[in-house]
Design a binder for these strands. Sequence first.
DNA 1: CTCCCTAGGTGTACGGCGTACACCTGATGC
DNA 2: GCATCAGGTGTACGCCGTACACCTAGGGAG
Lengths: 238, 238
Amino acid sequence: MAEQAETLRRTPLSRDRVLRAAVALADEAGIESLSMRNLAQDLGVVPMALYKHVANKDELLDGMIDVVVGEIGAPEVGADWKPAVRQRILSAREVLQRHPWAPLAIESRNMATPAVLAYLDAVIGTLRAGGFSVDLAHHVMHAMGSRVLGFSQELFDADRRAGRSGRTEPAPPAALPPEVAAMFPHVAEIAMAASHDDASVLGQGCDDQFEFEFALDLLLDGIERLHERGWASPRRPH
Amino acid sequence: MAEQAETLRRTPLSRDRVLRAAVALADEAGIESLSMRNLAQDLGVVPMALYKHVANKDELLDGMIDVVVGEIGAPEVGADWKPAVRQRILSAREVLQRHPWAPLAIESRNMATPAVLAYLDAVIGTLRAGGFSVDLAHHVMHAMGSRVLGFSQELFDADRRAGRSGRTEPAPPAALPPEVAAMFPHVAEIAMAASHDDASVLGQGCDDQFEFEFALDLLLDGIERLHERGWASPRRPH
DNA sequence: CTCCCTAGGTGTACGGCGTACACCTGATGC
DNA sequence: GCATCAGGTGTACGCCGTACACCTAGGGAG
């Protein structure tokens, strides 16, 4: 084992190895326990060694984002824009779900990282090939927001927050305490309906995947309608 | 001045005063410089004094969120659901724009804070009053995601990130460096169009407000159509 | 009037963080 | 065989959140 450790140590560090180790650490221990010190320990190295491969922690995060965004597969070429975009976004979602820390990380960075730009460029390319004007494509990308990367900032997905990936088993429907329910009747109504619904669906109160596709299709349908009608941006009177 | 300081010091601390000072500090110096130590200094008090009024920093953040969400006005009652919801969301947006750190803070907390629940409850109430089924209202809330609170996680709004509020003046259109443009032609195309568009609009390349309303109306229109058609959730065969 | 209780501000200290800076070391090129 | 230098090391600094013991002023209760 001493020799194994020795072997591992002898494998030289590299930017790539650092980034992959960082992603792995964040995946299994949560983003909040990704510190330069922990990461260095995982790599069998002293913290300052990392700085020979990444400039600082922010750059490390950017690199990690590029690694996971790079995992998203290429879109099918030649397909209709709508199924092509839809499929690509759903596959992005699949990737990001393997890295629960990524959405928050992406949103809190300045983000013009190469892999993200490449991804966005490909999506826009699909739209343009489908006959979208530059203008409409532009607004569509904004309208999609982060959904284009496969996540939707749900306001309530207790899991992703705080980066824990330990999956504390989906938590029993929990049904908010009655005094709270009384104060927020409409919220309670929905929570209740969602929980005695068919809980089979995911073990928890509501089906994330369904919600995601619901919103995605709502947007795609609306976009399709605009596109068919030859929507053009209202020129503001100058 | 010694006596003024004395007066200020004599004004007893309170949870409310702490929260307001924290919001003010985050507003003007950015969320990244909101530390217990800085906040205490602003209040003319020693850091540990704060802990007599908030349990810890996370609870402080929750309290701050409640303060800003509490600023959002009540919706007009009796109006049609669509303009009512639209107007309420736009006014939420107005509030949140005064606190650029809030969206990120909201997204990174666990968030079942009272003010947020009250706000969501009111929005759902408007939908239900407009004849929405519990089910449809539920999915609609998910589809809106964080947009319902007036922000949209744009993936690119350089301003909000990192909490700076110093408004470094919108930055000249910047036109990405040519070698980058060559690598991402579709992104470049859009960036270019947006920048020589009518830059008058906001001084920067593209009009945030327009983009926000574009996406909002896309969703609202789609939702209206579902509602008119009496959409019901597809019962999964059990 | 005294005593004690308690709410609330204080001081010190600890462990963790990111990272600047000087240093060492072993492979590589001349 | 010696210089170079990429890359790993060690120490140290200043920031962070916060545990814990302490002090102090004000207000009932006896």
